[in-house]
Amino acid sequence: MATHDPVGDRPEVRIDRSDVGRRVSVRRLAEFVDDRPVFRDSIGVLTSWDDHGLTIAPRTGDPVFLPEKLLVAGKTVPPFAARRVPLPVTAPVELQRIAGRGWPAVEQEPLGEWTLRAAAGFTRRANSVQALGDPGLPLPRALAAVRAWYAARGLPAYVEVISPGSPPALVAELDRLGAGYAPTLVRTAPLAGLARAGAGHDRVRLARTADDRWLSVYRRVSGDPAVEEAARRVLHGGPSVWFATVPGAPGQPPVAIGRCVIEGAWACFGAIEVQPYARRAGLATTVMAVLASRAAEEGASGGYLQVEAENAGAIALYDGLGFTTSHTYHYALLPQG
């Protein structure tokens, strides 16, 4: 809560620029009708406040902008109270398609019903072929085309194989070629319980973009300019993307970060990072809870995430938050031809 009134003598305005990233309720002067003022109320995330005015991201619809001089009242409000509803029923193949749209590659090209994806090598998810459906070619020719496409970009050729979901013939052909596998678990949970987890939710700030401070904590960004540019494009891609930050001390990088992308009934959680000195204090849970509340506010009811099968620490965390395994997928590395 603000400690001073930023707009003169309006005591009902109890927010200021330090509240950017929090959920707020504001009232603004909208118009005059017959010389009488008409007010409008908005609830949502305060995404910006500068000399031009304030911007609020409501539950649905376009952002709401208002000049500061029209602000009549404002206060911070608790995160959205997610309703307890069943987990959405979605087949593994469709959930993989949703996940692909939430982590869109810089370059995408169809091969029949398959999708070739590349992003300068930034993550295997954005640099693998999503082999769902019919490639329109016999499998040996399709996989040869995959290998050639990635070789032309100086990238290894990975094929995303879903279990259950991928046809046995594809797995058999990959086995025949001697492909190597790296398993990843897709885990799901209802959002309501997750949104109520953790404590200290008011420490978390939400934003539509990942700034340099957020990126400084994200471990997957390298010093390669091409990879960094690809990372920015992938991270900001998706239907409705939110970035969470727990600010550090003045002049210091964030203590914790996270990312969520929302599409329909589903919200994907990723990039949950906590500084080593601040681990085991529940910050990862708190970040995910605030993101889950925002996703529920936009209409989502289920959350999913992807975690490497050997990451026992992360799996234990997600077990405690109610996540269970929906399915497994593998990145099958094609041998060079």
Rank of each mutant, 00 (worst) to 15 (best):
Q130W: 12
R187H: 10
S216M: 02
R97S: 07
G136F: 03
V77A: 05
P88G: 10
A207W: 01
V93R: 15
R219W: 10
A296M: 04
Q130K: 03
G180K: 11
D51M: 09
E173V: 06
L177C: 07
A289W: 05
G282I: 04
A189M: 10
R27P: 09
L334Q: 10
R28D: 02
G44V: 01
Y218D: 14
R28P: 00
G238I: 11
G337K: 04
D224T: 09
E273Q: 13
G282R: 04
T328P: 02
V93W: 13
R208L: 15
G200F: 01
V290F: 00
P88M: 07
A179Q: 06
V93Q: 13
R125Q: 05
V161G: 00
P138G: 09
Q336D: 14
K75S: 14
A144S: 14
I162C: 10
L111M: 01
A244M: 02
R40S: 11
Y277K: 07
L87V: 08
H236K: 12
R97G: 13
A2L: 05
A148E: 13
V290E: 00
P164Q: 13
G61I: 01
T325V: 12
R176M: 07
A289R: 00
G121Y: 04
D41I: 00
P135N: 06
A189G: 09
F80S: 11
S18I: 06
P138F: 04
P168S: 03
I162N: 11
L194P: 08
T184G: 02
L185F: 08
P183I: 11
L170E: 12
R280S: 12
G112C: 02
R23C: 12
L66P: 06
F80K: 06
Q336N: 08
Q336W: 09
P63S: 03
V85Y: 01
A2N: 11
Y181N: 08
A131D: 03
G302D: 06
P254H: 06
A197L: 10
S216W: 09
R59A: 13
G251S: 14
N311Y: 02
E229W: 03
G238Y: 04
V234E: 00
C268N: 13
P37G: 01
G238M: 02
D50C: 06
S222E: 11
A256W: 15
G61D: 02
A231M: 13
W49A: 03
V171R: 15
G299H: 03
T123L: 01
W214Y: 14
D9C: 09
A2K: 08
A278P: 05
G198R: 08
R208Y: 05
A126P: 02
R101W: 05
E297F: 02
M1V: 12
L206Y: 07
D211W: 07
R153C: 10
T47V: 15
A332P: 06
E109N: 06
G322K: 09
Q252T: 14
L54N: 01
V77N: 07
Q108T: 14
R22A: 09
A271V: 12
